[in-house]
Amino acid sequence: MELSTRKEGKVQIIQLEGRLDVHLSLEIEQAVNDLIDKGEKFLLFDLAGVQYLSSSGLRIFIAAMRRLKGVDGSLKLANMSESVKKIFKVVELIDLFEIYPSVEEATTAFGS
């Protein structure tokens, strides 16, 4: 699987699509780990194309956040649908993440 990514300043924008089930999530988690290994510290996940998110998908963000904390990096989420937001709420992780309505707003929030 290839992640759709682009860089805006210091921010690595990662566009996710489809159903983040266990199969896809394991591949994405590895790809995100590779980005962090290459020195990317500021990750922005664009979730506009995510149809649904399982707990395997949640793991991508929790694992990335833990790794980024260790290198003074950070992670933000943008374009989350109501059904995806519901999953974060059910497991009470909604307050843990910085969530923005658009990629532009999230990118700005990273600062220069």
């Binding site: 707990s55 949640l58 793991r59 694992a63 059910v90 497991v91 843990l96």
Partner: peptide, 14 residues
């Protein structure tokens, strides 16, 4: 605490 946050175990809750 992010570093103490469990990485799995949310499936049953969902």
């Amino acid at each position: 605490k992010v570093d103490r946050l469990r990485i799995g175990g949310y499936g049953l809750v969902l």
